[in-house]
Amino acid sequence: MSLILATEKLSKKYRGKYALKDADVHISQGDIYGLIGRNGAGKTTLLKLINSQIRPTSGHVLMKGRPMAYGSPGIALGALVESPGFYPDYSAKDNVRFMCQAAGRDRKGYAESLLKIVELDGTGSKKAKQFSLGMKQRLGIALALVNEPELLILDEPINGMDPQGIKDMRGLLVKLNRERGVTILISSHILDELAKFATTYGIIKDGLLVTEFTRDELEHRNTSGIEITAPDAQAVADALKEGLKLQDIRLLSPRKLAIGDRVEAWEAVSRWLFDQRIYVSQFHVRQHSLEDYFMGLTGGGEA
């Protein structure tokens, strides 16, 4: 898949201190890219740089392989960075219609359709300043969608939302991604939620992009071992040591054994047991969560 966005040694310095340093981000077309990092790690700085809210100290942003001129994204972009920006004294519809006009997309019914997507179509003339936190977030997303973005940038979009709102938001983002082909760059503190739908991840720590990996790579890297339940665990352990030359096998109980960390060939183990007609009642691949993986990489702390 071709890259829709890449950065080259992108850096931003505030008062002599780097908020982001030499970041090389790679986002493929069609990705849902989850950006993870602790508070102050540089996530929002990166998103602001991509949205031309701030000027880089050095480095470049490339959109579809072409260097982005500051203030001219070169692709259809939508962004919700930090708190949603709206006119508090106007209704959701007015706010969206203003943006529709600015973007040259003021066709009949378009603003209403966007409000329907984020479920704000029933708010009528209620002023945006009277909205709940979740409603304000959804209004921010509607505004970000006005430009029919190829790339949608969302900074903590599910902050302040209730569980149902979070679920709906996930559904909306997945739908936008699958049905409209919108590439999404999203940062979130709620890693378990991010793990449910992001296809690629980037981890930022202290202004540095530590690593990037896909969902498949995460599953691969994150497999921590296998747990097998069998009537005679000891016999199974002996067979595996003999047949597959596995060494890191621990007996957890007479009926349960664990094969050590980083067992990457769990499919081979499963197949071998099947081929040898060794009966097991349970075969469980243990995986760490995205959060565990993040903690392992960054040394803990809040994401």
Binding site: S72, L77, E82, G85, F86, Y87
Partner: peptide, 21 residues
């Protein structure tokens, strides 16, 4: 100053040449 104060300016920045416009 309303656009800057309210943050609406951020939305506009996603559009090309937003500052000049």
């Amino acid at each position: 100053s309303r656009d800057h104060q309210s943050g609406y300016f951020k939305n506009l920045l996603a559009l090309p040449g937003a500052r000049e416009k």
